[in-house]
């Protein structure tokens, strides 16, 4: 099967969570400006481009800051309040900077029944953080997320773009070691 080239506007086509994010990287410059322009070509109006544009900003910086919201609002002719309504609705958009590894634990019903809460607790203890914080060594941020779509392998944990299946409290330490 030949490699399928995805349009840059497809949100999932680019990694939203990268280990090498830079929380203060300049937005919409160079290649990112080019990608922004490409994204706009795909939609009938600017507003429709909001998700891929935000995803691109997060890919670059690892989070969506107030400054990012204001810039995106300005570029897409939207109000900052409207952009905030989008970013605060989707848990995938992070309101704070994150560590090198964003550990997302599914706590929807299936995973919860299989012990997701304990996995979260163990991860927080092992990283010495509270939900959403960056660990002291800058490596880890643990958050709870909605269903990751792999209920047959509960508890599901996604670290940046990679999915780990059937995570148990016993395997948490090994998982963190592997990342390190």
């Amino acid at each position: 099967m030949s490699e399928r080239k995805l349009h840059p506007a497809v949100a999932g086509a680019q990694p939203m969570y990268r280990a090498e994010n830079d929380p203060d990287a300049p937005l919409f410059e160079g290649a990112y400006k080019q990608r922004f322009d490409d994204i706009l070509t795909r939609y009938p109006d600017k507003r429709a481009a909001i998700l891929p544009v935000l995803a691109m900003c997060q890919e670059l910086r690892g989070w969506i800051s107030s400054e990012t919201i204001e810039r995106v609002a300005e570029l897409l002719d939207l109000t900052p309040a409207y952009v905030l309504s989008i970013t605060s609705f989707y848990t995938m958009f992070r309101p704070q900077p994150v560590g090198k590894y964003l550990i997302q634990v599914c706590t929807s019903i299936g995973c919860d029944l299989c012990g997701a809460e304990n996995v979260v607790e163990k991860l927080l203890a092992a990283t010495g953080t509270r939900t959403g914080e960056i660990s002291e060594d800058g490596l880890y941020t643990v958050i709870e997320v909605e269903c990751l779509g792999a209920c047959g392998f509960a508890t599901v944990v996604q670290v940046n773009e990679r999915v780990y299946e059937s995570v148990k409290t016993e395997t948490v330490t090994r998982l963190l070691e592997e990342l390190r």
């Binding site: 109000t79 900052p80 309040a81 409207y82 905030l84 309504s85 605060s88 609705f89 989707y90 848990t91």
Partner: peptide
């Protein structure tokens, strides 16, 4: 005036 929006979910 475009001041108000919704936040959260």
């Amino acid at each position: 005036n475009d001041v108000i929006g919704r936040t959260g979910k």
